[in-house]
Design a protein around this nucleic acid. Sequence first.
RNA 1: GCCCUGGUGGUGGAAUUGGUAGACACGCAGGACUUAAAAUCCUGUGGCCUCACGGCCGUGCGGGUUCAAGUCCCGCCUGGGGCACCA
Length: 897
Amino acid sequence: MQYDFNKIEKKWQKHWEKSRLYSQYDFSKPKFYALDMFPYPSGAGLHVGHPLGYIASDIVSRFKRLNGFNVLHPIGFDAFGLPAEQYAIQTGQHPETTTAKNIENYKRQLKNIGFSFDWEREIQTTNPNYYKWTQWIFSLLFESWYNPHSNKSENIKTLIDKFEREGFEEKEWKEYSNIEKENILQEYRLAYQKDTYVNWCEELGTVLANDEVKNGLSERGGHPVIQKKMKQWFLRITSYADRLLSDLGNLDWPQSIKEVQKNWIGKSVGAEIYFKIKDLEQDKIKVFSTRPDTIFGVTFLVLAPEHKLLNKITLPKQKKVVQNYINETKSKNERERQQNKEANGVFTGNFAIHPFTGESLPIYLSEYVLNSYGTGAIMAVPAHDERDYAFAKKFNLTIRQVIGDDNSSIEEKPLVTNKGKLINSKQFDGIEPKEAQKVIVEALQKNQRAKTKINYKLRDAGFSRQRYWGEPFPIIYQNNVPKLVEDLPVRLPSVDSYEPTGEGKSPLSNNLQWVNTSEGLRETDTMPGYAGSSWYFLRYMDPHNENEFAGKNNIQYWQQVDLYIGGAEHATGHLLYARFWTKFLFDLDYLPFHEPFQKLVNQGMIQGESKLLFTGDRWLHVPVNYVSKDGKISKSSFLELQKVNKRFEGLKWDNLSHENDMLSLKSQSEKMSKSKFNVVNPDEICEQYGADTLRLYEMFLGPLQDSKPWNTQGIEGVFRFLNKLWNLFLVEQEVRVDDSQPSEYALKTLHKTIKKITEDIEAFSFNTAVSTFMIAINELTQQKCNSRDILEPILILIAPFAPHITEELWSRLGHSSSIHNEQWPSFDDSILKETTAKYPISINGKVRTAIELPKDLSKLEIEQIVYKDPIVLKWIENKEILKFIFVPGKIVNIVIR
RNA sequence: GCCCUGGUGGUGGAAUUGGUAGACACGCAGGACUUAAAAUCCUGUGGCCUCACGGCCGUGCGGGUUCAAGUCCCGCCUGGGGCACCA
């Protein structure tokens, strides 16, 4: 008899909402904050991959509730940004309309699954009550600078005080004009403007941050990205580079994410070395090197094509060649620059002077030197660096080995190593590289020709977007000096057209009424997608507060997010920015913690199963509903498909290889997407099997962190399990649970299940937890167990996983309060403690299945072991697990751990 | 090229971290119930040999440590992800 999941689930979802079950808090209890990465509501709606992480966090939230925690488990929507705007443009609607519609759809889908979200705390980043505070944090960043002495952010006033006291660059502060003052302060503000090369995407009509560009293409849409010089807002995340790196160590995050962030920050310790230029007294070329020990191997210098000294350095006869080269590089996009593997560059005609030997070193420029890293100039050591080596070979430059011994050779390739001894290095010969790095820098430092320096790959984050659908900046320009707008929020005005202008300006610039104010001109760029998501976890603590981003008491109570679940694709974007903003707010005493997410778990991707048809020269995705059960497509289905789907037009049945009027298809697991016809909608599963089955099955599929394919066949097993559960409690709608004494075996089943489930949830091993339920229910069914003392605790264990069916059964058992407010059962170790041998074993002539082991090990006498196989015995004494291994005839080993 | 991760039956995946490999589930085969089907229940299900008892081989490949290796060590092959002129 199947249970009526649809009726039951709807009933309880309504009831929970009405009784505000998940919106009630008891602040006398310890807190637990479980957070999901809030979704970006796309037009396509949720597919079964989306809820995976939400289900896991919901299980943990409910588990913590049952364990006496006051749980914060909120949800909201991240709705500003490019995708929503692109979608709106495509469908010809206002992004506000489409966003609202998409959010409604998402909410409906999410509510179907029965999460314990507190919907009363829902936030939307596009809501002015929310983005008011995003703008407020931007204002704080604008009004702050990073003080390297206190090693934290401070109000810009402390910097101005300093300038007023000490002056700036040998001039009194008051002698500077307002514009000059602002230009100086912009060098320090954490939100500042800079006229520089940025990632410009023509197709999207906007600038992108580094993490939004992959392989020279935009992450969104895959359009080419070029370097364009533009005046842009930036956030000075580089000030936090060191803290962002070193604090990674204390976080309970997946190793891979920590690794990615570490590489992204890319700290390298080395030295800045200054090279004099021939016949150019006042200027020096600064280079950055992690290998100052190889300085005697330097035979030339290379500058980036954008290097600011190039003009001065280049000799007249080389001007033309150099200019040509610069123009050529400029016209290439980043991708083209990276693809060029062969060394290329040109000579400036000028020379630098070696700080030790006085030797003349030719100065080149080449695109392999990046202007944005280090100083935009390098000292080339061809003997010990791949790129320098290739460059030297191409231009026939000297290659001088300075590390190694008689056996090492640089004939064929460079010797990239830090092992060995220095050679050809005058007074430093014989020193090991590591030591040499120190002494050589020290020697250079004496004459102000070098200093130790730490460099990061991390760049400041571009914060301007030339698009409509984002938070407006709270900035007005008065005579070109940016001033903060006091009255927040600055609302996003309506515009006639929100399509990109194509001139590098935001659509907002067309709304002149909005742009022109009595105070001055408004900033017309908008903030990037990550602005709203960098602090949303704080707003959930106090989402309706109109006077603060969140009240102090609330922040003090909820503290960090205890568990954060979401995809790994945000490693270098959202997760880094959120850490940055948290540290910033911590510095300004707005937060009592400096890391947002203590524990992070990445859920894997659920892949769809695509069906592909080979047409003779390519593979075509076939919609699943045309495919037969054995993965083939019949002639009639194929002809029908041709009528409705353009992709299949023009194909001739007779030209395809078929057998018995059936075409064979290939199966393939890949990311779910509409165009691949492999999307599975959770609504369908809820309709067919119910939300509880969906929840259990998603957990049962495999480890949360792994990518795994979705196959609908396996879902039957989980559905059967829930029916068995139902039938264990009820016979023809009659409760069969009574107050009978539980059998010893049933008690054992209960306690081992409590133990296993508790451990599994704590270890995020939800798939094995579901298996454990199945085993328990099978055992109890076979035993015909009907004891309330067993079945009620079992029901509580299952409740976090399948909240609806357990709630229904709980109420049928006569309870008037919700099962989700119950107490998590505890297990009795003594019931499980006795050591049992799985096989009979003979000790002192008696064959037993359970063995009591004497406390004194020396008294243990074994006469004979009946079975040939090794037998393992374990028991716990004084919290230590003692383990005996018996092999044929003797004790071979005693392990005490 | 560098850095993370994985590799176990027909399939998804277990294995108390060195202790009976394949739990649980799907699929498949056989059986019960049924006029029949669906649903449900029972039995079997890594491979090879054997009527059977039982035996041999088996966790990507090749070595090693150990009484004992999916698990530890060394050398390869391979899937996935990230970074990639970062000086």
